[in-house]
Simulated assay, not measured.
Amino acid sequence: MKVINGLRLVIANSRNKPVYFFIKQSIDSFFSLCSLIILFPLLITVAIFIKLDSPGPIFYKQERIGLNGKPFFILKFRSMKIDAEKNGPQWANQNDSRITSVGYYLRKYRIDEIPQFLNILRGEMSIIGPRPERSIFIKHFEKNVPDFRKRLQVKPGITGWAQINGGYEIEPKEKLELDLYYIYNFSILLDCKIILKSIPVILFAKGWR
């Protein structure tokens, strides 16, 4: 995929779709608020299991890079031991020994991601968009993929085109290409397609780690 004049394409696309952004933001806020209210009993249950399973906090905060390179703290249910990064930042893998017993199921069925609806309500994320990365990994990826920061031209999301087409295991270059496809072609129809394709990914625990 060619990304020449990519920023110009994004700006033109954004100017032509103010209604799209209004609708998307409204849906993000409404869906996130309703989800947190409906899932409240589940959230309480998960919190209890996390506390019983291992010492440490219920929630896990980590700095990620969002829209236009602005950092924010992403919120998740804690799924790893409290000393998970005692040896420095590192990627998680499917058989990671740092993952707790409860954390295994939280990650497998994406339950650990539910608190990110609060990030959406704060305007830091969207339901659909590129997954937010840590600054240290972005700098590392840029060594081989100089355009990797172009993913930051839209709000990061809980799910997205790259997640449903490649999951967590794809290489940074392929992730960039898939995310840029979404950035250059975003629409209500494409968002609906991503949501529908995300459902089996969650139900059948595809591509988790």
Rank of each mutant, 00 (worst) to 15 (best):
G88L: 07
P89Y: 10
P89V: 06
P89N: 13
A92H: 00
A92I: 00
N93I: 05
N95A: 11
N95I: 01
D96P: 14
D96R: 07
S97M: 11
R98G: 10
I99L: 12
I99G: 11
T100E: 12
T100H: 14
S101A: 09
G103S: 13
G103T: 07
Y104S: 10
Y104F: 15
L106M: 10
R107K: 15
R107I: 10
R107M: 14
K108G: 12
K108Q: 11
Y109P: 03
Y109L: 01
Y109R: 08
R110V: 13
R110E: 13
R110Y: 14
I111F: 15
I111P: 14
D112G: 12
E113N: 12
I114S: 05
P115W: 05
P115I: 11
F117I: 09
L118K: 15
L118F: 15
N119I: 06
N119F: 08
L121W: 06
L121D: 08
R122K: 15
R122I: 03
G123K: 12
E124N: 15
M125G: 07
S126K: 03
S126C: 12
S126P: 05
I128A: 10
G129K: 04
G129L: 03
P130L: 09
P132A: 15
E133Y: 02
E133N: 10
R134Q: 14
I136D: 11
F137R: 06
F137A: 02
I138M: 02
K139I: 00
K139P: 00
K139L: 01
H140I: 00
H140D: 10
H140T: 04
H140W: 01
F141W: 01
F141C: 01
F141L: 00
K143V: 09
K143T: 13
N144A: 12
V145F: 03
F148Q: 04
R149F: 07
R149V: 03
K150P: 01
R151K: 11
R151H: 07
L152C: 09
Q153R: 07
Q153E: 10
V154N: 11
V154W: 11
K155S: 13
K155F: 15
P156H: 02
P156C: 05
P156T: 03
P156D: 04
G157L: 06
G157P: 04
G157F: 06
I158C: 05
W161A: 08
W161Y: 15
A162W: 01
A162I: 03
A162S: 14
Q163G: 08
I164K: 14
I164F: 14
N165M: 09
G166V: 00
Y168V: 06
Y168N: 10
E169V: 04
E169W: 00
I170P: 00
I170G: 04
E171I: 06
K173F: 07
E174L: 01
E174P: 00
E174R: 01
K175F: 03
K175H: 04
L176T: 02
L176D: 04
L176P: 02
L176S: 07
L176I: 03
L176Y: 02
E177V: 02
E177K: 09
L178R: 12
L178A: 02
L178M: 13
L178G: 08
L178E: 06
D179L: 04
L180H: 03
Y181V: 05
Y181P: 06
Y182R: 08
Y182K: 11
N185M: 06
F186Q: 02
S187N: 02
S187M: 04
S187H: 05
I188T: 13
I188A: 09
L189M: 11
L189T: 07
L189A: 09
L189Q: 08
L189C: 01
L190N: 03
